[in-house]
Amino acid sequence: MEDIIQYISENQQEFYVFILAVFVGIEVISKVPTVLHTPLMSGSNALSGVVIVGSIIVLGKTAPDNYAALTLGFFAVLLATLNVVGGFAVTNRMLEMFKKKPAKK
């Protein structure tokens, strides 16, 4: 328990960012119309692919002879890329449907 509290106090900045980001996330989408629910879900899904940064770092710092870690890291990068690329491409395809019609208010 003490360790956890110490960890939080040592990483205060991160936890401030954490809490502020919660409110930012709620604030930015609070007025989303119903038609945009699915595209927004898809778009935010693509954003959660930001974990790709972590997977690049993890594979990048693995020793070249640690085959187990290399394999896991390789798949981490592969899957995260799928998430990012697929996510943005699908969102774009969904939003293309909004292009022709005049925008709803």
Partner: peptide, 14 residues
């Protein structure tokens, strides 16, 4: 951290 939490909270509200 920021991107993840943004998705986490926006996703929850959504």
């Amino acid at each position: 951290l920021m991107g993840g939490i943004l998705v986490g909270s926006a996703g929850l509200l959504l």
